[in-house]
Design a protein around this nucleic acid. Structure first.
Lengths: 159, 159
DNA sequence: ACCACTTGGTTGAGGGCTCAACTGGACTCT
DNA sequence: AGAGTCCAGTTGAGCCCTCAACCAAGTGGT
């Protein structure tokens, strides 16, 4: 039932650095946020998701999916953003259970302020070390891997 | 001072799925560990590092570097592994400050037991979605990015 | 109308992680 | 030898995150 063959040399050469990237990169980016913008990486992700929402707002559970955080966490993060005036939370008219979150003007400008520095970090830690062809080539591959990680439709052969 | 140009379409196509992978993959792997082996991903990483150590043991601060965790965290993780009988901690003879950690027999077999399942997960979530050429191509690229993330020698032009 | 069930969100408890403050061993300079 | 400094590890405080338990609003069958 379980695969006992170890990783090949080539797989090993992918997996080792990938684990390192997965653990270190987020920390490096987080540091930027804490030190220079006063919001956390998570806050930022929430603000980005809201800024990209079709209608300008998102219900909390959709926000949770968009950010890959638990609904429980999103609930608290949004509350904290509301407290800091960056986000607004309004109960849905037609369904008393749902709450919609949207950016305030202040949230929008906080996001605009944080964005360039974040991008600069992403560049200096990632894209500056990749050739243009490598970037072009990596997109579809990463998309495939990411898609497989999503809870639904993970299996390529759903029959 | 700060780069204001947004990500190109190709960069975006790399960055989006990569963030997703970075946040979701660790969680998926962690779940396996908790549910099936009784050790955490962090525990596992420590055990692996120790099993690969030249001399069979590592001082705590080297373990911290190897795992990219804070010394503080390592101190507690090792204590917990000691308490569970998977690791042994011995004060260094020649330098009263340092503590060396090494695997116990029980730790070694715990590692051997967890390894195949972990590998199977890594395969099913990652390598099963990559073609052999892709795997071969990705290694050096990821190694380069990972190297740039290491605290020392990060800058390609230190002059 | 009522009861059971489902669904969106909130809250309490607890684990993982880091930073800062601290302890105690070792090295240096006089 | 004694004071100052540095270094390895420990410990307390506190944030981030999840799970499980919960509450309140909607839905469907009778």
């Amino acid at each position: 039932m379980v695969d006992r063959v170890p990783l090949s040399r080539e797989e090993e050469a992918v997996w080792r650095p990938l684990t390192r990237i997965i653990t270190v990169l987020p920390r490096v980016l987080e540091d930027h946020f804490v030190n220079e913008t006063g919001i956390s990486m998570t806050d930022y992700t929430v603000l980005v998701s809201l800024s990209e929402a079709e209608e300008g707002w998102l219900r909390l559970s959709d926000l949770a999916k968009a950010t890959a955080l638990s609904l429980s966490r999103i609930s608290r993060v949004v509350d904290s953003l509301v407290k800091r005036g960056l986000v607004e939370k309004v109960k849905c008219e037609s369904d008393g259970r749902v709450a919609n979150a949207s950016l305030t003007e202040s949230g929008r400008s906080k996001l605009a302020g944080a964005y360039p520095g974040h991008l600069a970090r992403v560049r200096s830690h990632l894209f500056d070390h990749l050739a243009p062809e490598e970037i072009r080539g990596a997109g579809p591959i990463l998309a495939r891997v990411a898609a497989a990680l999503e809870p639904d439709g993970a299996q390529p052969c759903p029959e």
